[in-house]
Each structure stands twice: as structure tokens, then as C-alpha cells.
């Protein structure tokens, strides 16, 4: 836990320095139209970096969380089982879209993790995307990414 806390605080300090450099590419001083566009971000990034350093020093000087594991046993697996399919849905958005991707995600998760009976699994994983489709695409006319598969099914493209 302590190593994780130290590493994370270190990462924040590095990020802060990167932010400062990015902000400093624009004028950070007084310009013809008042404070330059880089002024606010630059000083914010400086404050962020300093706060990160303070956290780093305080974490270093305390023994809090020494020897504790960062995650309880088996938690890695459970987190990846939820998170990786999320990443998968977004990664394949171009092909599957939100509705088919959501259908597969619901199907897989309710069946494999929840071990619910098939009728419930099918009802939920077809019903939910269908309901969302009707609400967003039909009634509110807010187009969501439908994906190439659904588009070719719907419009024959």
C-alpha cells in the first residue's frame, strides 16, 4: 500500500511538470488583452505540482499502510472481469455500436458472472438495449454509435 501511494504521488508530480511545460507554450504573463492564455493553467499546474510534492513528502515520512497489500486477495481478477469487457465494448464500438456491444456485455456478464437462468439473461440483454434504442434513436432523435453491423442490418448499408 505504501509503495503504491508513493508511486502514485510521484506520478502526479511528473504529470504536474508535464502540465507546466504544456501551459508554458502560451504566453503566461500580461498581454494586450489582460493575463495571457497560459497564465491560469501555468500557475494551476505549478500549484498542482507543489501539492503533489507535499503529498509525496508526507507519504514518505509516514509509515501508514506499511506491509498492507494494495488489493485484497482475488480482487485483481474481479476488477479485470468488469473492466476489460468495458474496454472491449469501447474498442469495438466502430463495429458493434453501443447497442450490440451492450447486448453482448449484458449477455456475458449476467450469464458468466451472475449465473442467472437463460430466460432472464436473454430478457435483460435484449430488452435493455432495445428500450434504450427506442428512447434515444426513435423518440429523442439522439444518434448513438450504432456500429457497422447494426447499420447494415437497419439500413442495408
Amino acid at each position: 500500500m505504501r509503495q503504491a501511494a508513493l508511486g502514485f504521488a510521484g506520478l502526479l508530480v511528473v504529470a504536474g511538470i508535464v502540465f507546466m511545460r504544456e501551459a508554458a507554450r502560451l504566453p503566461t504573463g500580461w498581454t494586450a488583452s489582460g493575463p495571457g492564455p497560459g497564465f491560469f493553467p501555468f500557475w494551476l499546474a505549478t500549484g498542482f505540482t507543489l501539492a503533489g510534492l507535499a503529498v509525496l513528502v508526507r507519504t514518505w515520512s509516514s509509515n501508514h499502510g506499511q506491509g498492507e497489500p494494495f488489493l485484497p486477495g482475488g480482487a485483481w481478477k474481479r476488477i479485470l472481469v468488469v473492466f476489460l469487457p468495458m474496454v472491449g465494448v469501447v474498442a469495438f464500438l466502430h463495429y458493434l455500436g453501443i447497442y450490440l456491444g451492450g447486448l453482448l456485455y449484458l449477455l456475458g456478464y449476467t450469464r458468466l458472472v451472475g449465473r442467472h437462468p437463460w430466460p432472464l439473461v436473454l430478457a435483460v440483454s435484449v430488452g435493455v438495449p432495445l428500450a434504450l434504442f427506442l428512447v434515444f434513436e426513435r423518440w429523442f432523435l439522439m444518434p448513438m454509435p450504432k456500429g457497422l453491423v447494426l447499420e447494415s442490418l437497419l439500413y442495408g448499408r
Binding site: V82, G102, Y105, L106, Y109, T110, V113, G114, V124
Partner: peptide, 24 residues
């Protein structure tokens, strides 16, 4: 049950996030 709620919440989150600017 959580095994239904978790993917449901994730999908709602994705739709909500996409609707803001329509960008992946």
C-alpha cells in the same frame, strides 16, 4: 442483482458520456 446492475450502469454511463459531444 449486481450482475445485471453492473453492466446496465456501465452502458448507461457510456451513453451518457457519448451524448455530451458525440465523440468516441
Amino acid at each position: 442483482p449486481f450482475a445485471i446492475l453492473a453492466p446496465l450502469i456501465t452502458i448507461l454511463c457510456s451513453i451518457g458520456a457519448y451524448a455530451v459531444n458525440n465523440q468516441v
